[in-house]
Write a protein that binds this DNA or RNA. Structure first.
Lengths: 150, 150
DNA sequence: TATTGTTATACTCTATAACTATA
DNA sequence: TATAGTTATAGAGTATAACAATA
């Protein structure tokens, strides 16, 4: 990992992250949600039903902001709270069928973004993207745990 | 592009976009910027000096929000306005050296996210990521130009 | 007449902190 | 005593619309 080739890859990853953020903003407007709400839908699509605390933590929100977020999702019929079976303090957040419709809608966009990837490359592409995502999440967690910069 | 293999790739792309958004939020806090400000720095790192209008458009902001954004960047010494050589209505936005320090800081994070990619794969990885980013941007532009959903 | 950018106002979303309930 | 969630308040960031300057 040396020199111009790495620079290119970093540059491309930067561009992809920006493209992802733009996609999020545009799609959110299209389906009538805010950016944070659309992120939550995507998060629940990836992780399945999840505690409200985990949702808020992983989206970088405080508990109060998490409450407000899930309130809005419930009001719009996108997700529902359900009580945690063991712990009565907690609640699980679950997509409604309308929430899953939004997921399906976004699937079309993501599929067309992968249109150029040949069928024989799809498996290794999936592995590659997932691995980069995991590394990025690890790095974010490290930064979050460290002190401020400069 | 059929069946479970595609689902995996879409799933991975969804996870990568989420990881990118989390990275943005965490890094922004680390360097003392807001999310939109950090997006602008990244945008300028990818595209070089750029008109304020292009910056605002590509970040999904109105012109008024673009003015406020660049005002904040200037106030924090991250970027500067300079007059457009041909068109006196326009202004170019350019990173200062402090802004480029922020870019360098983020480069370390992105490099470590690519740590698992072998040197011999870096070139094709860069091409792949870039192509997905371009397709995603095309799709976002299409959605933006269409009517609202459902 | 169209485009770029600025200004002023209002609104949405999130952070913060104090609080309740449960573990 | 610690954790999950709620509530109330304040603040940051953005949208909107009217405006000025330039093309």
């Amino acid at each position: 990992m040396v020199g111009a080739r790495e620079d290119d890859a970093v540059h491309s990853l930067r561009a992809l992250i920006l493209a992802g953020e733009r996609y999020r903003s545009v799609l959110a407007g299209y389906v009538g949600l805010g950016v944070t709400e659309a992120q939550a839908v995507s998060y629940l699509a990836v992780h399945g039903d999840r505690g409200q605390k985990e949702l808020a933590d992983d989206l970088g929100l405080t508990s109060g902001a998490g409450t407000a977020l899930v309130d809005r999702l419930e009001r719009q019929g996108i997700a529902q709270r359900s009580p945690h079976p063991q712990d009565r303090r907690r609640c699980l957040v679950r997509l409604t069928s309308r929430g899953q419709d939004v997921v399906e809608e976004s699937r079309h966009c993501l599929e067309s973004a992968l249109r150029d990837v040949g069928a024989e490359e799809l498996v290794q592409t999936a592995v590659l993207l997932r691995r980069i995502a995991e590394r990025l999440n690890e790095r974010s967690a490290q930064i979050e745990a460290s002190d401020a910069w400069s």
